[in-house]
Amino acid sequence: MTFKKYPLYVIPILLYFLFVSCGGETEKGKKIIIDVNAVDYWDNAELVWSDEFDGTRLSTENWSFETGQHGWGNNEWQNYVADDNVEVSNGTLKITAKKVGDGQEVGDYTSTRLNSIKDFTYGKMEIRAKLPDHRGNGLWPALWMLGSSVSTDGWPACGEIDIMEYVSYDPNIVHFTIHSTSNNHVDGTQASSGPIRLETAEEEFHTYGLLWSEEYLKFYIDTMDNIQFTFQRPKEFNANNWPFSKPFYFLMNIAVGGNWGGNEGVDDTIFPAVMEVDFVRVYQVKQ
């Protein structure tokens, strides 16, 4: 590049942009490298979005209802409805599964499935929740994320991140799982933590966390140093085995029955069943 045709006062500006575009060095002569594996990387994360569930109404700016009783790909029995099975009070969101019919059939139960309006790529995601009191079999609550391309790519190509899953026939146990074209439960190839014992899952609130970067997904309970499962980006990665470099949105729901939740049947005496959510928070490291 020649600078002869530029006024002298413009040359420093050109040099600066040349330096930035070439991935140059700092004034101390050290190249700027952001290491997502550094022990203090997530210490610099800043809160960028949250719902603390204050007040008495669900925020329609943050959440939308997904409704229907078509089985949701898992032969589930609930009819997801809007409004009637959701309450915001005393600083928490309550999602309630109810028995409304004779039982043991699709549509005899109602529940709610909430989707976040906003989606995110990378960050520290935290959902603090208390699972339904344990009274019997048949519930399948989940706190999870789905690739925003689901409407065009379909599942599992869009990707799925299960921040917490639980089935009530297996009390005091939670699971962390990812799904993609290469890893999914339909083919029996899902990548999962397996059962994680959490003795107070139904009695107390716990923070279910995800550290999501361009290189890994790390799942933890309560604190970042309590990692329960890590899924590392494959060395040879592509859309089939790593669809996790694009926007995902949150989902929260209680399913009834289904291929997993109904493995040991559905006990009709357990309803109504309530999952409480204290907050949903997203932190990101500014690049």
Rank of each mutant, 00 (worst) to 15 (best):
T207C: 10
V150G: 09
D187Y: 11
L146C: 07
L251H: 08
T223S: 04
D267T: 01
V81F: 05
Q78E: 02
W72A: 00
L14N: 04
Y80V: 07
E61W: 07
P272Q: 05
I34Q: 12
E66S: 09
S245Y: 13
P7R: 05
F120G: 15
I227C: 01
S168I: 01
G68R: 03
F205K: 03
H134Q: 14
A38S: 15
D133A: 03
E25Q: 10
N241L: 03
Y9H: 13
M252G: 00
G91Q: 03
D119C: 12
S213L: 05
V277T: 06
G91L: 01
L18A: 11
I254T: 02
S149I: 08
S192F: 09
V39R: 14
T121V: 09
W212C: 06
D268W: 07
F65Q: 00
F279E: 08
D54L: 12
A38R: 13
K94F: 10
A273F: 00
F3I: 03
I33S: 15
T56G: 11
H185N: 15
A157D: 14
S148A: 14
A97R: 02
I227T: 02
I227E: 01
L114A: 05
I163L: 13
V174G: 12
V86P: 04
E204I: 11
R233P: 08
A273N: 01
Y220N: 00
G194Q: 10
T181H: 09
F231C: 03
E61K: 14
E214M: 13
T60A: 10
Q190D: 14
T189A: 06
L143G: 08
Q228E: 13
T60S: 12
R113F: 02
I178E: 05
S193P: 06
V274E: 04
H179F: 06
E105H: 10
W63M: 06
E76G: 02
V36A: 11
L15S: 08
F250D: 05
G68A: 06
V266P: 01
D51R: 12
D162N: 05
G24P: 07
I270E: 04
A255Q: 00
H179R: 09
N253L: 00
L251M: 10
E76V: 01
N37V: 11
G29I: 10
A142T: 05
G261Q: 00
E276Q: 05
P12V: 02
N90E: 07
K118G: 13
E52I: 07
N44W: 06
